[in-house]
Amino acid sequence: MSIEEENFQKNDNFKLTMLPGAFAKRMRTCVVWQFIRFMVLNIKMLIVVSKSH
């Protein structure tokens, strides 16, 4: 059963939010995509750090 069919039925609070689909979940652990995101996140965080000093 997909996560949305399983979890949305468990709790009324759960029904009012969003859940990741299969593609979004796969991308979270896709090493190539995550390596790109790692570089992007590092750059963005460095910008935030530099703006904070």
Binding site: T29, N42, K44
Partner: peptide
């Protein structure tokens, strides 16, 4: 522009 959130391995490596 500088307030963002993301879930995945990348954040974990950070």
């Amino acid at each position: 522009k500088y307030t963002f959130g993301e879930v995945g391995l990348a954040g974990h490596w950070i």
